[in-house]
Nucleic acid binder design. Structure first.
Lengths: 227, 227
DNA sequence: CGCACTACCTACTGGTCGGTAGGTATTCTG
DNA sequence: CAGAATACCTACCGACCAGTAGGTAGTGCG
């Protein structure tokens, strides 16, 4: 690092203007909060416009600081994106594992997990869109291999369905394809909300409409799995 | 212009300019084909990396020409994107309407349309990813309002399901939510193929695996709609 | 031949990108 | 109170972006 050629340092750089003393200084308490503000705004922007469609200036402006100040808190754009994404994964895994760990069996457990998913997505719609973009790009945008992280959950769910089908609790389906179908059915409603708004008369992502869609997905899956 | 010091013009430069006479000249027949090549490569790039992630240089390089030559065929990047997208829509609507116009009734018609969708998506996976990105961005990236174009088809399909449910052919579900669920279940398999590859042992988007998923979706929906 | 036309090129413009250098207030700490 | 640390700033960099200017081969037609 820092082996910048001396030739790049010009005299004009030294004569920086002292005209604008912004005075928007932050205390230590606020410092943590600035970091959080940046992460929150980044999530919003990355979900809305994607990685390439979001500039550090956009994020900085949303927070109310300049780009270099943002880069004081995060080493690079990729590092910032990575931190937002890691937080996404951690939040999701934590909340999903609570539902997965539940001792319920049969349809009750499926309903439990689906409900947890809906609640989770309802709380974090920006996460959903960001995840969708990540899946579209192959899930390997950064160091994290999204599929590899979710694979254990996926395998466990698949085994659960297979066991319940063997036991005759559920009608027979291909469990892995069933999971892919389910994940697509649920995620799409949240990721494509802006598009779906144009297909229906109500507005998607309102509390009422989410509940409507959740009820539909639950009854639809129940209808396909239970006699 | 051309105020380059004579001293900088080396013999190698002069020879270089004559060593590479591009010679990739195209006749009138090829001219149309260059346009097609550009559209094909654009589709590939826009599907792979999105609008913001694709530069005109990327596309031009894929075709084997320079960016200004590309802009000789299309007025701007947006115009190019628009033409690719319009072609997408036209292709889809044409092929879907054949299936929709069929006189089949009950489950046979659903199977017909689903099969047409699968065949369509299998033939044009790049279209699917581009569409997905468009839906993520709200479907109003350019002048075209994606949802408005599809709305008539959506309404007709919804009315069909309602009628069949009223007649007792299908079990009762909310038809509009059913369509959203269905579109998500099918589209996701194609749009997120790279991610799904990491969740399963087989490779998605092979002929065999697509058939497997189609069979699953058909039997799953049949299971949910028919007693 | 002369002239318009097409398809391509190199070389450039203005602007934006991510990132860096270096400075300045303010606060914490010894 | 001195010095380190923090959080912000302006001014800059090189790279890349979409798009333009202007030139040059080759083609078709009078």
């Amino acid at each position: 690092m820092s082996q910048v050629p001396l030739s790049q340092i010009s005299a004009s750089q030294i004569s920086a203007s002292q005209v604008a003393p912004p005075s928007n200084f932050r205390t230590d308490d606020d410092a943590r909060s600035t970091r959080e503000l940046i992460i929150a705004e980044s999530l919003r922007c990355f979900a809305e416009a994607g990685y390439n469609g979001t500039s550090l200036n956009d994020i900085a402006a949303g927070v109310g600081i300049r780009r270099p100040s943002l880069l004081h808190h995060f080493a690079s754009k990729e590092a910032l994106y990575g931190e937002v994404f890691e937080r996404l994964l951690a939040d999701w895994l934590e909340r999903l594992e609570v539902a997965v760990a539940d001792q319920a069996l049969g349809w009750a457990k499926v309903e439990l997990v689906l409900n947890a998913g809906f609640r989770l997505f309802e709380d974090t719609p920006d996460y959903v869109r960001m995840m969708r973009r990540e899946a579209l790009d192959g899930g390997t945008h950064l160091g994290i291999d999204l599929a590899a992280v979710l694979r254990p959950l996926f395998d466990a769910a698949s085994a659960y369905f297979d066991a319940q089908m063997d036991a005759g609790v559920f009608k027979r389906h291909n469990s892995r394809h069933l999971l892919i179908t389910g994940y697509g059915a649920i995620l799409t409603y949240f990721s494509d909300a802006a598009f779906i708004d144009g297909l229906i008369d109500d507005e998607a992502l309102t509390k009422e409409h989410i509940a409507e869609h959740r009820d539909h997905v639950l009854s639809f899956f129940k209808s396909a799995l239970i006699d």
